[in-house]
Design a protein around this nucleic acid. Structure first.
Lengths: 193, 193
DNA sequence: TCGATTTTGTAATGATCAGTCAAGAATGGC
DNA sequence: GCCATTCTTGACTGATCATTACAAAATCGA
């Protein structure tokens, strides 16, 4: 029953992402991944390498799909509106039923396996979001939507922290109404032009 | 070498807290706890029960010591000043060298132990902080420091999320300057009287 | 001083973990 | 149609895990 690959890599990564997202890196065993993906042990090791390498592939896949989607709102010409839309999109998507709770990156950031490479990748991917926020805010300064003295780095750090706080709150059981009320208050920290 | 207890319960709990805080519930083995506390396997099981029961004791010990300390600032008559002092104290304490990164409760919430009793305890302890914030903010409304229409529940949720976001940011590598800049921005969301 | 009780150290248990390996099976190039 | 290559399967390995059982040792009440 072999010779050519029996599965689609993206599909397997999506299923593996669900498993890691739901249970965390350490609590997700190879056996769990076999059941989640439908692949055998050997196929997983043959296609992705060891568990840490598979997790790195999962992190990248998550960042490209789930993580990147809300960032598109930052392209809005109105920086404040774009930021708010991004936050609301993040809150709304978290609430979709059947989806693992919280954010995979945030969850994994706090459950390090001692794998330095994994920690570095998480830091890189998280830094990407902060960089995107900084870029959008800097554009806001250039277009006079924010005062020229606005501390865009501090603002980016803050809204990054809010996103992470929303992830933790959701993981801890918060519902959509609670998450959106956090967004409401967070937007009051946005500086006037 | 036995007959009477050779250790102080609080001291052992403090050492066990460090271990769980640093590595997380699952990554902390009984062997690690033996080394961290200086106790043998038998003593640990005899004194605390199984690993989950020990972790519950650790969570309570953490909440009573590390977690409760910053909340004292909320007793300030000036609600806004008390809240800001609490946030700054949390940020400052996180930065102390040698201390495990992040917040034990937040870390444990995101890296679930699979034990429902543990998860329930974490939710309870986290809820305690939100309740303390709500009480302080409600007092602010009663003393006309906040407008009577202020949504104290939403504000409490928001500042709770900020604290969690600060914890994640610190775990992810943020330094004291970064954490305090998050506090600076967060305080701008506090409503004017 | 002596027996009952509690604590401690150590060894052993069964389960589960990540990772490996050899053999079988199906494909593609020729 | 055949061979080399690639993929899958399933059993296996050694390590580590939490937990228990048991015996030695030390204290306390009498």
């Amino acid at each position: 029953m072999a010779g050519t690959r029996h599965f689609d890599t993206d599909d397997v990564l999506t299923k593996a992402t669900q498993a890691f997202w739901r249970d965390g890196y350490e609590a997700t065993s190879i056996q769990t991944l076999e059941a989640a993906t439908g692949l055998g042990r050997g196929s997983l090791y043959n296609a992705f390498g060891d568990k840490a390498a598979l997790f790195l592939a999962v992190l990248d896949h998550y960042a490209k799909t789930v993580g990147a989607a809300p960032l598109a709102h930052l392209a809005n010409a109105d920086v404040r509106a774009g930021l708010e839309a991004m936050l609301r999109a993040i809150a709304a998507r978290m609430d979709t039923p059947g989806r693992p709770r919280g954010c995979l990156l945030t969850n994994s950031c706090l459950a390090p396996a001692g794998q330095t490479e994994v920690e570095a990748r998480i830091a890189t991917l998280m830094g990407g979001m902060q960089a995107a926020l900084e870029a959008a805010l800097r554009r806001g300064v250039e277009t006079d939507q924010l005062a020229s003295g606005a501390d865009v780095v501090a603002l980016a750090r803050f809204y990054c922290a809010v996103v992470r706080g929303i992830g933790v709150s959701h993981k801890a059981g918060a519902d959509l109404a609670a998450l959106t009320s956090i967004v409401d208050v967070a937007m009051r920290a946005f500086p006037k032009p």
